[in-house]
Every structure is written in C-alpha cells, then in structure tokens.
Design a protein around this nucleic acid. Structure first.
Lengths: 210, 210
DNA sequence: CTCTGTGAAGGGATTCACAGCG
DNA sequence: CGCTGTGAATCCCTTCACAGAG
C-alpha cells in the first residue's frame, strides 16, 4: 500500500516523534512541525499519514502517542525481525556497533565471515559464524534481513547465500550491485557513489534539498 | 543539466566500466550490458549517457575508454576536491578507512572531533583536529565536502560549523536531518531509516528493484 | 482563524517504441 | 538484423489549493 518513499519517511517521523515525546513532553504535533524536524513538506507529511490511515484533529494536530503506535503497526513485525551481517571488516564492525547502539526494533543477531579466524568470535554481542553455517543460523534465528559488507567481488556470492538461506530483504553496502530473485527486496547503499554525487553538487551547485 | 539521479548512476557506470576495462580488456559495451552490471534498465543507461552528450555507435556500442573520460569530465573536479569528516567515532573511522581504501578521486584530508584527546592523532593517514581548527583547515586544504558522523544531537552544530567554514556539500550520516542554506548541497544518509525500510519490505514483500 | 484530509494539478523520471544507421 | 538516440507515453511522487471541521 504505502510506497517505498513513504515507508522511509515514516521511519523518520517516528524518530522525530519519539524525540519530541521524550525531550519536550508534548502530546500533539502539527504536520508543519513534524515537517520541519524531518526536512519534508507539510503536505507530504499529511499525505504520508493519510496513507497509513491515521487521522489527526484539525485544531490540535496529531496525537503523538497514537501516531507512534500507528507507525509501529505498519513498520514493525510484532514478533521481531532478526538481521545478519555478512562481512566483518571495518565497515561491518562499525555497522554492527552502530545498529546495536541505536537499539532499534531490529537487532543484529549473527555475523558471517569467510575468514575462519574470525568465526567463533563475538563482536558487540554478536557472534561470528563461518559462511557454511549460514543456512542453519538464519533458520534458527528466523533472520529475515541480511546486510552485506564484503568487498565488491564477493557481494553477489554473499547475496546468493543469503537468499538461499531464506532471507527476504538485503541491504547491500558493497560497491557493486547485487541481483536477487523477484521475491527478495534488495537495496544498494553505495557510499562511494553517494559521495561522488555530493562532491559533484558541491562543485556545480544546486540548492540543498529543503 | 544532469539530474541528481543521473549523476548517481554515472558514478555507478564508471565503476562498472573501469572494472570491465581492467578485468576483461574489452574496448566496447552495449547499453544492455552496462545496464545488467548496474541494475538499471538499458533505456535508462542510454538516456543518462545522452544527457552528458556522449554518443555510441549503433553496431559496436560505447567506447569504454572514451565513455570513462566523458563521465570523469562531468563528475570530477580537475583540480581535485578535498573532504573532511566530523566525528571520529566508530562510524567515522570506518568511513575514513573505507574511503581511503577505495581510493576514489576524493580523499579525506582532515577529520574533526570535539574530544580534545583525539585531536592530534592520525587515523588512516588522516589527521584529527579540534573543532575550533575547522575554519583554518578547511580553507588551507580547500575542502569542499563535509561528512558528518556525530551523534544525532550534535549533527546540526557540525553542519553549521562546516557551512561557516565554507564547504558547499554535506553528506550527513547522523540520524537527524540537518538544515543548511540553499547554496549548500546536503544529503542525509540514514542507516537506521534505510534498515527499517528494508525490514519492512522483507516482511510485506515487494519485489526487488530490477 | 488555523488546522487536517484530499481531489486535482504539476513535475520528474522512467519506460515504450520506433526511426535510423551500420 | 541489433544497436543507438529520442519523441511520446506512462508512471509515480509531490505540491497546490480548498472544502470541512473545531
């Protein structure tokens, strides 16, 4: 129902809302306030909230508590979703670290690396397994999402193994696109490419977004 | 001239082309081959190349060498562009490491951290300065792009300092949107948000892209 | 009044589909 | 033939603008 862009923004809204709830003890927000906090237009915010079927009140705005619950109902799996990281290099370690520190509803439950020396270690509360163990571990821990942080040349193999093991979502940090079957969702998050884009617009100019 | 999306893909194409050039010694590619390597449609590839004014030949495809040069002409600053990282935590270190390992045309020339103990150290060939030194260092090294990898609460301050120091592009990894003046290009690259999006589509399904 | 919810309009980006060429 | 280059069509996303509600 909700589009890819909308889902991304819902996650953004939720974080802003939680911050509002904790820092100020505010019970309501207007669409334009939420917009300001997330660098999105007010009309866009209303559209997005409409798409999850949540309604605010014209004179008080949106009830923050209820809204957070509505968003959670969309985004979160009630039984929790596990994730696994493939590739425990610098970037992989930083990701594990970062994600567990932010404590979202998603936890990195396992890591995999082809280096046998790394297997058996525990990084940031996350055990490292050999690639061969992937099918078992993924099944046992009901892992649905795989993060790929291996070198470019190994990315497709990592994706294939993840798919074979049964994950249905992949976030690929490697500087190479991976191909997956149609039933698997995959997103490439390419640092170098993004960096080159920013450098380009830093040079030729093109106002910021919002 | 070229749109934001197109610029991102040009960077993608270049990387694929360079790999083709090195690994196979192929002189030409067809749009559909380049498309397969980058998870983009063939028509899209042709459109993008058209937008930078490069023309292929109907029977041999595109000359890889010339095409790489054409893309470089668009993307790269002939005199080089410097970058700086603000926030030398786990993520910041991984970024410095990762970027310098990939050796793109962009080099991280300096890092900044508010922790005085970190100032003076050198990480992966990159010196860490105190935040106060930013204006000088940015000017001296002609740094145009700033990467923000500080905690959410410090992101806007980091952005303000970077802008004041004179950068014209910001890539923000912190989980909070930053606001910058219109003449500065800024992109938020939010790991948690992206992760939640992948987890969502892993759960509810929605074929992969391409 | 100032807000929300939303039909309608607008704007981009992507794909279609085909002419033209070697 | 099979490819490129490209107008036209399509699709999706965002914004406009206003009715409706308190």
């Amino acid at each position: 129902m909700a589009s890819e862009r909308t889902i991304g923004r819902l996650s953004l809204y939720r974080r802003a809302l939680l911050r509002l709830q904790v820092e100020e003890r505010r019970p309501f927000v207007y669409s334009h306030e939420l917009a300001g906090l997330t660098a999105v237009s007010a009309a866009q915010v209303r559209r997005d909230l409409m798409s999850i079927g949540y309604s605010g009140s014209p004179n008080r705005g949106y009830d923050i508590g209820e809204l957070v619950r509505s968003i959670a109902e969309q985004l979160d799996d009630p039984s929790g979703q596990g994730m696994a990281v493939v590739g425990v290099g610098n970037l992989g370690r930083a990701i594990i670290n970062y994600v567990s520190r932010q404590r979202p509803r998603l936890a990195v439950g396992a890591a995999f690396d082809k280096d046998p020396d790394k297997a058996g270690r525990v990084i940031q509360g996350c055990r490292v397994y050999s690639l061969e163990r992937m099918p078992d571990v993924v099944r046992e821990q009901r892992i649905q999402v795989g993060l790929i942080s291996v070198p470019a040349g190994a990315a497709q193999d990592a994706a294939d193994r993840l798919v074979a093991a049964g994950v249905s979502g992949i976030l690929n940090f490697a500087p190479a696109s991976v191909h997956v079957p149609a039933h698997v969702f995959s997103e490439d998050l390419d640092l170098i490419t993004t960096l080159e884009k920013v450098a380009y617009f830093a040079r030729v100019g093109k106002g910021s977004e919002r």
